[in-house]
Measured scan of single mutants.
Amino acid sequence: MQNSHSGVNQLGGVFVNGRPLPDSTRQKIVELAHSGARPCDISRILQVSNGCVSKILGRYYETGSIRPRAIGGSKPRVATPEVVSKIAQYKRECPSIFAWEIRDRLLSEGVCTNDNIPSVSSINRVLRNLASEKQQMGADGMYDKLRMLNGQTGSWGTRPGWYPGTSVPGQPTQDGCQQQEGGGENTNSISSNGEDSDEAQMRLQLKRKLQRNRTSFTQEQIEALEKEFERTHYPDVFARERLAAKIDLPEARIQVWFSNRRAKWRREEKLRNQRRQASNTPSHIPISSSFSTSVYQPIPQPTTPVSSFTSGSMLGRTDTALTNTYSALPPMPSFTMANNLPMQPPVPSQTSSYSCMLPTSPSVNGRSYDTYTPPHMQTHMNSQPMGTSGTTSTGLISPGVSVPVQVPGSEPDMSQYWPRLQ
C-alpha cells in the first residue's frame, strides 16, 4: 500500500499530492522566468500547473527564495509595531506611495530583511487598517496617535501638521516623493554593498519588468496595427511575429492590442446598429396606417339613396333571421326581375335548405315592403301603392349592394327569390 497518492495534472505532468515540487523543477521555473518566458509558457514547457508556477515565482520575487514554506503551523507575524509605524510614516510623507514602493524602502533602510519582509498584500492590509482606524477615531485622537508614531512633539492640530517642515499644504506631496526618490538612490547604494547585491538587483529588475506600465504606442505603430486590423481581426502567430519585427513591439503586446481592438470594434458596431435601427424607425405612426385595407374592405359607393341603408337594423327591421341572411350572402350585381318571367313554384328541397333563413311567422307573405323604405322617402312611396304591378321595390342582398326588384302586385311571395340566388 502506497503512503502517498501520485497523479497526472491537466498538462500531463506527474505530481505527488500534498508534497511540494522538487527543487530542480523550481530552479528551472526561475531560470525560464529570467530568460523572459511568460508564466503560461513555463507552465506548458515544464508541465506544471499555472497556479503552481505563479505561486513559486511570486514567492521568489518577494523573498528571493525558491524553497517551499513549512507545511503546517502558523507563519510568524511580520507586521510588527515597528514595521507598522514605518509604513504609516512613509504614507504620511508621500500619500500616493504604492505598497511595493513601501516594501522596497523597508528593505533599503534595513527595517526588514528578506526573511521577515511583509508581502505587498500585508502592507496593503496595514494601510487599510490605518485608514479604518482613522475613520473610527476622532480628529484629536487621530492626531495624537500619528504624533506618537512619528515621534515628534510638534502641533498636529492642523492639517499642514501632517507634513512636517512644510508650510504650503500643496507642497508636502512633492517633497515626500522627492525624499522617497532619494531613498531609492540609497536603495541602490545599500544593496550594492550587501553580499547578495547582484541577486537582489536582478530580482528587482525582473520584478519591475513584470510590473509594467501601460504600453505607449507611437503613431507609426498605431498606423501599422490599424492597417493589419483592417486586413483581418484575428491575425495568426506568423502575422503577429512579422508585425512585431516590423514595428519593434513584443508579440504578446500585439496580441493584447488586437484583443482590445476587437472589443472596441464590437462596441462601435453595436452603436452603429442602434443608430441604423433608430433612423429606419419613423418618429410617429401615421393615422391612416393604423387601418389596414386588408382588414377593412372598402364599401362601394351607393348608386341610389335607398342603398345607403345596408342592414335591417338601420331600417328599423327587427327580424334577425333576414338580417343574418342578407349579411351572409355574397355580393351580387344589380339585376331586375321582369313581370314576364315565369313564376316557378319553389322546389321543396330548395325551400327546406333555406328554411332556417325565413321567419317562422306566416304573415311574411302579407307584409308590405314599406318597412324598408327610409324616412325621407315615405311620402313618395305612399303616393304609389304597392298593389300595382309596376311598383318597384329595392331588396338588399349584402352591405353596400342594392338590387332593384320588380315585385308582382298580386302576391309578394318571398319564396320566388331563392331559386334565382343559387
Rank of each mutant, 00 (worst) to 15 (best):
S96T: 14
F15I: 04
N114I: 09
V126E: 00
S74F: 02
P118D: 02
H34S: 11
D23I: 13
G13E: 01
P20Y: 04
V83E: 01
N150T: 11
R67F: 07
S65F: 06
Q136P: 10
M142Y: 11
E133G: 10
R103M: 04
L32V: 01
L127P: 00
V111P: 13
D23A: 12
I102R: 02
A99M: 03
G51T: 08
A131R: 15
A131L: 11
S35V: 13
D23S: 06
S4L: 10
T80S: 05
A131Q: 10
S6M: 15
V120L: 07
S4N: 11
Q136C: 07
G73R: 06
S49Y: 02
V53G: 01
T25P: 01
I117C: 14
N9L: 01
T25D: 05
R92E: 13
S121M: 00
P95G: 08
R105Q: 12
V53H: 02
G110S: 09
M137Y: 13
S108P: 06
V126S: 07
I56G: 04
P20T: 01
Y143L: 11
Y61A: 10
L130N: 10
I71V: 14
G7C: 15
F98E: 02
K145D: 12
S35R: 14
L11D: 05
R103T: 05
N50L: 05
K28Y: 05
P95M: 11
G18T: 00
G58S: 15
L57T: 02
V126H: 04
V83D: 02
A139I: 15
K86Y: 12
Q10V: 07
C112I: 07
K55Y: 03
L11G: 06
S122H: 00
S6W: 15
I117W: 15
R69C: 06
G51R: 02
S65E: 13
I102Q: 04
G7A: 12
I117A: 14
Y90A: 10
E109Y: 09
N3V: 13
C52H: 00
V30I: 09
I87K: 01
T25H: 07
T113A: 13
V126Q: 03
H34M: 13
S4F: 09
E82F: 12
G18V: 01
V78L: 03
S65G: 04
Q2I: 12
C112H: 06
R103V: 07
I71A: 14
Y143G: 10
D104K: 10
E82D: 09
Q27H: 12
P39L: 07
A99N: 05
V120R: 15
E133Q: 15
S35L: 15
P81L: 07
P20N: 00
T25Y: 05
L21N: 03
K145G: 12
V16G: 03
G36C: 03
L32H: 05
L21H: 05
L127R: 15
N9R: 03
G72Y: 00
D41V: 07
V111C: 08
V78R: 06
R19E: 03
S49H: 00
K91F: 00
S49K: 01
H34G: 12
R147W: 11
V83W: 00
Q47K: 15
D23E: 11
V111W: 09
N116Q: 09
Y61Q: 08
S85C: 09
K75C: 04
L107F: 12
E109H: 10
S49E: 00
N3P: 13
L46F: 04
